[in-house]
Design a protein around this nucleic acid. Structure first.
Lengths: 189, 189
DNA sequence: CTTGACAGTGAACAAATGTTTACTATAATG
DNA sequence: CATTATAGTAAACATTTGTTCACTGTCAAG
């Protein structure tokens, strides 16, 4: 394992949400010449773990990201190292961080689409939805998370659960959409 | 909405994975005095969106994190602003980034536990699993993602699908565990 | 033994950094 | 009206930044 300098750097970044300056790295890595740092950094830039733009150092996506392996097709081994992708969950799931928020799900009305009690959904604030979207809405002034539908003949908007034990929800007075579910996330244990 | 300077900063960070220097912010924000930047930054530090340690600017967790609203209990409004939590999906889902990787799921063998084709699972590398864990394993040299079980009487380890259409998988020769699924993630559209 | 490649030291330096101070214009308040 | 806060300009500055150059010791290969 050696004294894993890259690990130390990652630890610093995780803690401080920024890269250390060369002088700080001196201490972190235990060097006594900035040039030692300089050479080490350049090696990491070479390896595409860090980049320099405008002379400023920044991590690349490889620096954080997790390797995304291909699918397992029954019996075949996982894709080889070469065609690996790297992925950050935040980047993958959240397109517009300014309009997104999270919501902890309760109830079993969406089990049919694989959304269970305790899951966390990523919601993008918007007033309009496409038919079939899972929406955060206020139906007759009650908040709920359901599938957005439109009656084929009457063109009336309604909400539908993804669980046969619930009926369709037609608004008596009002139906207002506040956001659309873009992703679900579930943690085990 | 005004010309949302904080949004511009976030955009820069998202693109470059670092904060801009004050001189860079001059251009980004359209100021012509560094002092204007200075004052603005200090306001954000005050608001706990940024921090300074050792005179170096860094984002706080609030800077990225999304507000996590409480559960919707039928009919009740969403929790008020005060008791909001803030959450980063990466932090929430990935405990040990060094031993974790992602895997795109194919097949329908885990639909019963809400894992579908196209979902991405977070796997933590480890050789041992607890009964009931969803594991990445090699059974008779074939890779698969299944639930780890042990026969009550015989104490023999086997794999189980979460889909009634599949039988239990008892290893003929070998069963080796490579990792345990810690989380699932699904993106809509 | 010689050579060359590494890995690190130490010093020097131009350029850029964040901060401070003094000042101006605008708008809001009483 | 006078006052006070707010948002910005402009210039000056010590400190720190990343980089470069010259040098040393170590180790492996021919």
């Amino acid at each position: 394992m050696s004294t894993d300098k890259l690990g130390l750097l990652k630890k610093f970044f995780k803690k401080n949400r920024r890269l250390p300056s060369y002088s700080e790295m001196l201490k972190i890595f235990g060097f006594s010449s900035k040039n030692a740092v300089f050479k080490l950094i350049n090696k990491w830039v070479e390896a595409n773990l860090l980049t320099k733009n405008d002379g400023k150092l920044a991590p690349t996506s490889h620096f954080f990201a997790l390797p995304l392996l291909g699918t397992i097709k029954a019996g075949y081994p996982i894709l080889a190292e070469e065609n690996r992708n790297y992925l950050t969950l935040d980047d993958y799931l959240i397109e517009d961080p300014t309009s997104a928020f999270l919501l902890k799900v309760s109830g079993d009305s969406l089990t049919g689409v694989g959304i269970f009690e305790g899951d966390i959904v990523v919601i993008e604030k918007k007033k309009q939805a496409t038919i079939g979207d899972i929406v955060l809405a206020q139906i007759d002034h009650e908040w709920t998370l359901k599938i957005f539908r439109k009656n084929r003949s009457s063109r009336i908007s309604y909400l539908q659960a993804a669980n046969p034990k619930y009926p369709d929800f037609y608004p008596k007075a009002s139906l207002e959409i506040f956001g659309v579910v873009k992703a679900v996330v579930r943690k085990f244990n």
